[in-house]
Design a binder for these strands. Structure first.
Length: 593
RNA sequence: GCGCCCGUAGCUCAGUUGGAUAGAGCGCUAGCCUCCGGAGCUAGAGGUCGUGAGUUCGAGUCUCGCCGGGCGCGCCA
């Protein structure tokens, strides 16, 4: 359970009871009341601002209000001490027994601990990656993939019905370029002659096998034919090949989407764009107009041109946006409106898109569109992921697509390898992607990725997990006849856990449910990685303290009860770390070999 | 010129959706191995939270104006 939500409920019902008994004025709104962990541990375990936000409407001084509330809360069994502090905070310090019960809870629930029903089964659609099917994924795509994937996992963990979705941008000019590039490789495959890849086509070697496969399938059928004949079939072939490539990359990264939607086949060809434009027209949200050139920059080839525009300004955008190109085809935006409407029609009133930061200018119009097509009932949140800089011992890795020195996501995963303390390369990549908030630039240093030091957050967390397992190996050796399993550990007498560092560690563990909720609702999966680091740090500290003060060791050979209690704590730490790592997509290790 | 994002210790970054005395890693200084794994731990120095106003009981967090950096700005996606 999230103990802070629990206490918030308890506090508001206390307030209601106090109002009913006349000790506080009735009819007060407790909406803004919070129950939170104070920053300073010295201020107690749970702090509420009730008196601060309700005193004024109650016509009381905050401290008087606080006194009444404090008296009521102080009589609770789980409250050790109540204090009124600062301008009127009511601070609760909880009894050790409350924390011991949290430990029992963790051992009961195991890695499910922290899961909740907060989302009430509401559908949420998370769209992420959505890389153009024109080549393998690069590291920047990888970041979006990880952020989206873990955000989806977080939302699922707190009770939302999450759908992970990939939108294939296979309808624009870029896939025509892909087709021409693949055609070139096809001709190469036919006559064996290497060709210079002209400017404007994709030079990557990854298209060579596509050309060969096309030859395999179609022989010389397209050789010497005009583009109008081969473009569509070659394009389809190449897109499929690229999606196979991307699916492989995603699989290597451990990312699985439940649904792939094709812009070309599922949106444009099904007339979905025409339909949504018609319905917007019927609501007078589409018109033919002429856009002003952007001020301050002088587009050299600017010509005023009448075009079909969507009134996005009515929904918060800065200018109205074009829906149609001059050749009559739809803009990417128009198709994207139809696609997001499709998601609304599939029941997703909450949509989250994960994009690269270079798409920042696109956010407002898309949110405007979602608002418009859903009649305001659906919302779109957009998470923008900043660039990833690949480094080699602090030096930027030089990359050039044309020179063929481009480092792909797959290269990175493969290079980080398998079998080390960190598990597979994908796990390392996934964790590192969370070591910065999504809107911050991220330095990805190969040297640091596998370094074995406190500076490497994943290493540090894995080391803590390994140590929890090590403690059990030690216990088995010292007390061979001791029966140790999770059920037993969950039922031992925890009273022996009285040291403030032990209680402190339980408090950190007990913060896990709230952290999950916060990370999920705010769309900030990096919080999981930072939390695990903090938890690992607290555990390492206690471990070392045991080395210095034998009385604090986990295994005390002549005191079985104490040993069992402490092993319960160690086990709970291991469970929460394992739970967090698996959520991120990292397999926790048993030992650091 | 406009919009969005960012600006926190020497460096790299957190900061729990507005809470109390702003934290961590690296680096620097000083300590801790007859060990339960020192791949770790403890302590210290280091800050006008870019800046100026505003909102309120309270602002690193919200609003506005500046300064600096990044991204974007009609038929690219």
């Amino acid at each position: 359970m999230n103990l802070y939500s629990y206490f918030r409920e308890e506090i508001t019902s206390s307030l209601a009871a106090l109002a009913a008994s006349g000790k506080l004025p009735s009819g007060l709104d407790s909406e803004r009341v919070t129950a939170e962990p104070p920053r300073e541990a010295a201020h107690g375990d749970v702090s509420t601002n009730a008196a601060l936000v309700m005193a004024k409407p109650a016509g009381m001084k905050p401290r008087d209000f606080a006194t009444v509330l404090a008296e009521a809360l102080g009589s609770r069994d789980d409250v050790l001490k109540v204090e009124i502090a600062g301008p009127g905070f009511v601070n609760l310090r909880l009894r050790p027994a409350f924390w011991h019960e949290r430990l029992a809870e963790i051992l009961r629930e195991g890695e499910r601990y922290g899961a909740s029903t907060l989302g009430r089964g509401l559908p949420v659609n998370v769209e992420y990656v959505s890389a153009n099917p024109t080549g393998p994924m690069h590291v920047g795509h990888g970041r979006g993939a990880v952020v989206g994937d873990i955000l989806a996992a977080l939302l699922a963990r707190i009770g939302y019905a999450v759908t992970r979705e990939y939108y294939i941008n296979d309808a624009g000019a870029q896939v025509d370029v892909l087709a021409r590039s693949a055609y070139l490789r096809y001709l190469e495959a036919l006559d064996g002659a290497k060709r210079e890849v002209p400017e404007g086509l994709y030079p990557g070697e990854y298209l060579v096998p596509v050309g060969q496969a096309l030859k395999q399938r179609d022989g010389a059928r397209w050789q010497g034919k005009p583009e109008s004949e081969w473009l569509a079939p070659v394009r389809e072939f190449a897109i499929n090949a690229m999606m196979d490539l991307i699916r492989d990359d995603l699989q290597a990264l451990g990312v699985r989407h439940a649904r792939f939607t094709s812009e070309r086949h599922d949106v444009v060809e099904k007339q979905r764009v025409q339909q949504v434009v018609d319905s917007l027209k019927a609501r007078d949200l589409v018109y033919t107009g002429v856009l002003e050139p952007p001020k301050g920059m002088k587009p050299d080839d600017w010509e005023p041109r009448p075009q079909m525009l969507f009134r996005s300004t009515q929904f918060g955008d800065d200018v109205d946006r074009p829906l149609q190109k001059s050749d009559g085809s739809w803009t990417y935006f128009a198709a994207d409106i139809a696609y997001h409407l499709d998601k609304v029609e599939r029941g997703f009133n909450r949509q989250i898109d994960v994009w690269g930061a270079d798409h920042g200018g696109y956010v407002k119009r898309m949110q405007a569109a979602v608002k418009a097509v859903s009649g305001g009932k659906a919302t779109l949140e957009v998470k923008l992921c900043q660039l990833v800089n690949l480094l080699e011992r602090g030096e930027p890795v030089k990359m050039s697509k044309r020179a063929g020195t481009f480092v792909t996501l797959r290269d990175v995963i493969d290079r980080l390898g398998e079998g080390s303390w960190a598990g597979a390369g994908a796990g390392i990549v996934r964790f590192i992607m969370l070591t910065r908030k999504h809107d911050q630039h991220l330095d990805f240093d190969f040297a640091k990725a596998t370094e074995q030091s406190k500076d490497n957050q994943l290493f540090y967390v894995q080391y803590a997990h390994a140590r929890t397992r090590s403690a059990f190996r030690q216990a088995k050796e010292a007390l061979p006849d001791l029966e140790i399993d999770d059920v037993r550990l969950g039922r031992v007498n925890f009273a022996a856990l009285a040291h403030e560092d032990e209680i402190g560690l339980i408090k950190t563990l007990a913060g896990w449910p709230r952290l999950l909720e916060g990370a999920a609702e705010s769309g900030e999966p990096h919080r999981v990685a930072f939390y695990l680091y903090e938890l690992a740090s607290a555990f390492h500290a206690l471990w070392t303290r045991g080395k210095e003060e034998p009385a604090l060791r986990f295994v005390v050979a002549d005191n079985r009860e104490l040993t069992l209690a402490r092993l319960s704590l160690v086990r709970a730490v291991g469970m929460v770390i394992a739970s967090g790592l698996r959520l991120i997509g990292v397999e926790p290790v048993e030992e650091m070999r």
